[in-house]
Amino acid sequence: MSYKFDFEFLAERWPDFVAGAWLTIQLTVLSIALGFVVGTICALARVYGGPVVRRVAGAYVEAIRNTPLLIQIFIVYFGLSSLGLKLSAEVSAVLALTINMGAYTTEIMRAGVESIQRTQLEAADCLGLTRLQTILHVVLLPAMERVYPSLASQGVLLMLASSITSQISAEELTATANLVQSDTYRSFEVYIIVAVVYLVLSALYRLGFWAIGLALFERRRRLGTPL
């Protein structure tokens, strides 16, 4: 093997990589947050909703979880624009990632909501809490605490999966890599660097989720034990 590694392009192109990574962070933080809201609402619909609502939420989850993200992104970006709804690549990316994250969050949060015992709901009833109050104060936070590790790893998986949005030319980290490698012909080196950046990002996201968990769940902060 006579291949010589050459990382010289980095001196000139590193701002591109930083910009790409920054867009990856923006896209995914937004999608994770929005996806969490969508997923939580759908999870509540799946557990407490009427039969029709339950069905609709169930169909959404199955449709998304059994088709590839790449195709979902294509449908949102190319499909919607051919129907007359023109969205920019970034908006399409966030929309597709949110829909995807929402479906997975629904399944995760459903497990959490179902784990709340009936007696808790009855106790809330006895205290005269309204349905909304019960859900906000009695159901959601403990449910989330129970499934928090799964939520966190789903968040990291979504961050990694956001690399797929490079295929609709959202200029995030992977798209930046594709661009730089086509300018410099240093494809192997470029993708090694990007792989390292993604590894660092996954570590950062795990750290972030851990910190959010500590801030959110008093019990974990005080006792250090999961619920």
Binding site: A161, I164, T174, S187
Partner: peptide
């Protein structure tokens, strides 16, 4: 598990 599959694909391809 810390790198996207897409990057693994590019790495092995190139």
């Amino acid at each position: 598990q810390g790198t996207p599959l897409l990057i693994v694909l590019f790495l092995s391809y190139f």
